[in-house]
């Protein structure tokens, strides 16, 4: 599949934004509103900027962005529509939360509202993952590992960013590092399993079933229907990454998980936590590469005809 920059940017940036909201609100519930309103508000602004930036970026790849509101109508059947509905729903709820938190920072009954916001944020990332995992025509995505990866990487990058912001705002909480380490390990395992499944290539669709042939015969394209390229080949026929995918996967794993993990260990050992900001930067690069590979490695069943 063609890795469109707008979708790569949208899925990584907004995933991180939702992860940041989830981290922030879990922190609020857990530690009991120890953040000053200013610190809360700064984190809130960063997360909303990421989420909104991602949403805007996703509308960039639409042919008719001016009709984007139509996309909220088909939530009964379409995961893309559900994603849009959840994404929009988050804004008023978190605005109310922020206002109430501002009016009374000690109001613990706000925790109920936090849980609702956390659930909406999770539902949004879940829907993003489901858009891809529900496509049977693309074997590499058609697995719940895809949804898991979206959730795990959204949560991980969000928490990593939250940790960096806390440091910059002068907070330091050792507990966060343990959650980070656990999330890195889980995300890494999820991604490796995704690639193992992809390499097994256990799909029943092949050139023979594409033609309705009963047994698996050797099928070669003798004459293409068109000499030049077309929409299908440009959109679904992306092949560049597959040649180097093994190397790129290692680089993605190194940047997204291994280097951040080492840096976090090092920061604990050295008791010098500010270097974890470096871990965040590495992780972002790694996740961008992971997302690029997610698209570039995916093979669409229509390619059986070419």
């Amino acid at each position: 599949m063609h890795p469109a920059k707008s979708i790569i940017l949208f899925t990584t940036i907004s995933g991180m934004g939702y992860g940041l909201i989830i981290s922030l609100l879990i922190f609020q519930i857990y530690v009991g509103h120890t953040l000053s309103f200013i610190s809360y508000f700064l984190t809130f602004v960063v997360s909303m900027t990421l989420v909104s930036g991602g949403l805007l970026s996703s509308t960039l790849h639409l042919g008719h962005p001016e009709r984007a509101h139509f996309a909220l109508t088909q939530w009964r059947s379409s995961w893309l529509s559900r994603e849009g509905v959840f994404a929009i729903l988050l804004y008023p709820v978190i605005a109310i939360y922020t206002l109430l938190f501002y009016l009374n920072p000690d109001n613990r009954s706000l925790d109920a509202l936090s849980i609702i916001i956390i659930l909406i944020a999770i539902a949004t990332i879940f829907s993003t993952g489901k858009i891809y995992s529900s496509l049977r025509a693309i074997y590499s995505w058609n697995t719940e590992l895809t949804t898991f990866n979206y959730l795990a990487l959204g949560g991980l990058t969000g928490l990593m960013l939250f940790q960096s912001l806390l440091l910059l705002m002068g907070y330091n909480l050792a507990n966060v590092y343990y959650y980070l380490i656990i999330l890195i390990i889980f995300s890494c395992i999820g991604k490796i399993l995704y690639w193992v499944r992809l390499d097994l290539n256990n799909t029943t669709t092949n050139k023979s079933t594409a033609l309705g042939l009963k047994s698996q015969l050797q099928v070669n394209l003798l004459e293409s229907p068109h000499d030049a390229s077309n929409f299908l080949l440009k959109e679904m026929g992306y092949k560049v990454a597959r040649k180097h995918s093994k190397k790129l996967r290692k680089i993605a794993l190194l940047f997204a998980f291994i280097l951040p993990l080492l840096i976090i260990f090092l920061s604990i050992v050295l008791n010098f936590y500010h270097i974890t900001i470096l871990a965040f930067l590495f992780m972002i690069m790694g996740v961008f590469m992971e997302r690029w590979l997610f698209f570039a490695e995916a093979k669409h069943s229509v390619m059986n005809y070419y």
């Binding site: 599949m1 790849h61 639409l62 042919g63 008719h64 962005p65 009709r67 984007a68 139509f70 996309a71 893309l80 858009i131 496509l135 049977r136 025509a137 693309i138 669709t205 077309n230 929409f231 299908l232 959109e235 679904m236 669409h300 069943s301 229509v302 005809y305």
Partner: peptide, 26 residues
Amino acid sequence: DACIGCKLCSWACPYGAREYDQVEKV
């Protein structure tokens, strides 16, 4: 008149039956 040109339907079709019009953007 309702198509936003998100192209998701072309991804969902296993047969490549749908083609995007780059000028009309639907």
